[in-house]
Computed example of a mutant assay.
Amino acid sequence: MRIDTFYKTESEISYTNRIFQEIYFQKSISKQEISKLLQLSLPTVGQSLKELYTLGIIQKNGYFESTGGRKAEVISVASKAKVAIGVSLLREFITITALDLYGQPIKEKICYISFERSDAYYRAFGKAVNQFIDELKYPDNAILGIGLAVQGLVSQDGQTIISGDLLGYTGTDRSVFQNNIRLPCRLFHDTEVAAYAELWEFPDIQNAVYIALNQNLGGALIVGRQVFHGDGVNSCIIEHMRLIPGGRKCYCGQYGCLDGYCSINSLESDAGMDVNTFFEKLKHSDSHCQEVFDRFLNYLALAINNIRMVIDCEFILAGFLQPYLTQEHLQMLAKKVSSVASFKNMTFSFRRGVHGPNAAARGAALVLISNYIYGL
């Protein structure tokens, strides 16, 4: 599936949808402004507004200041009238989030359920998600659906995990989850929707490489504000770029993949401690941690430079490691990238993601919200 910011052509969008989008992006607007901006008659605008009021997704918020005549009513989106749920499925736990129509978190929860490919797990998974739905206290028809972010490549129709070696669930069908959840769900590749979550926050980004510094590394390529898949669904799987030929064995079966050197798992293994302890000691200038982190950044710099030789764009550093990365760390990384660059005059930039460990769950929900906004 393409995860688009815009996925309908102008001819396919109804007047009501165009008006809803205008209200959504303007945040507050009058009936007269809508008529002027969209070049629609006031009766046409009025009829569409009536439909939107009936749906309960817009509201009146007082009046604008008078410009000499009758005060115009302020119209805005009822942001909490609809919610979308995103679920990120990891080996040891799941993260569940509910977002309003502007992508603001309403409720988030972590449930510690260890993954196994069994009916018992899918029942426990469904029970946790259904309980979360109950706790929201929203009617089912106000929930836009459930996006399941999984660690693996997903078919374009969102029905099947076509490559899931990390958790051993290649070939798993959406139905094993759907049979235990009372609301419609679909599958997404976690790194792709995590990248989408960052796009949502950064409207200025057009092209970028998204690097998810999680327990296992992930990546996504953003081109023209869309996650790029290439001719199949295998684009920008940077975790399996060969960094050290004959190096550490990767879960994919090969040796020397980037995941073995630039993931949280590799950092914890090299340091001999968990990531929280590691960064606490690093903050206090522990020599062992400094050495491990310096080597970690060296590997990451090599990978970034290799990617830059093919794609000239900025990099988003995100994922579970993002909250630990300081501006000083980014400056260190930038110097290391410059030191291995073939062309010293090449410019590049980093920015930190904002969603941290919640990016995948939020991104899965945001795709559903985007589909609703543009498909009303």
Rank of each mutant, 00 (worst) to 15 (best):
R2G: 00
V74Q: 07
V83L: 13
G356M: 09
D165K: 13
Q327G: 11
V223G: 00
L49C: 01
F293T: 05
A81C: 07
Q290H: 02
Q215M: 08
F132N: 14
L199T: 02
E108P: 00
F296W: 15
A271G: 03
L144P: 12
V83E: 04
N141Q: 13
Q254G: 12
I19Y: 03
Q322N: 12
I13T: 10
L183M: 03
P357T: 11
V367E: 12
E280Y: 06
G158F: 15
C185M: 04
S266L: 00
Y374L: 07
Q215L: 09
S287T: 06
I211P: 10
S338H: 07
R174S: 08
F115W: 08
C252E: 05
L167G: 00
L90V: 03
T9L: 11
L267M: 02
N305Y: 13
D119P: 07
G256D: 11
D286R: 04
F64C: 10
V275T: 02
K36Y: 10
C257S: 06
V337Y: 03
Y138D: 05
M346Y: 06
T16L: 11
V275W: 06
H240S: 09
G375T: 08
V233G: 09
L166V: 07
I58R: 02
E280M: 07
T67Q: 12
K344G: 08
F343Q: 09
A364L: 13
N234Q: 09
A194N: 11
E314H: 13
L243N: 03
N345F: 13
H284G: 00
E135D: 15
D157L: 06
F279A: 04
E65Y: 11
Y169V: 06
N305D: 15
L89V: 13
R248V: 04
V154E: 08
I113N: 11
L221Y: 15
N216H: 15
R362A: 12
Y196P: 00
T191N: 13
F315E: 05
F296I: 07
F6P: 01
E135T: 04
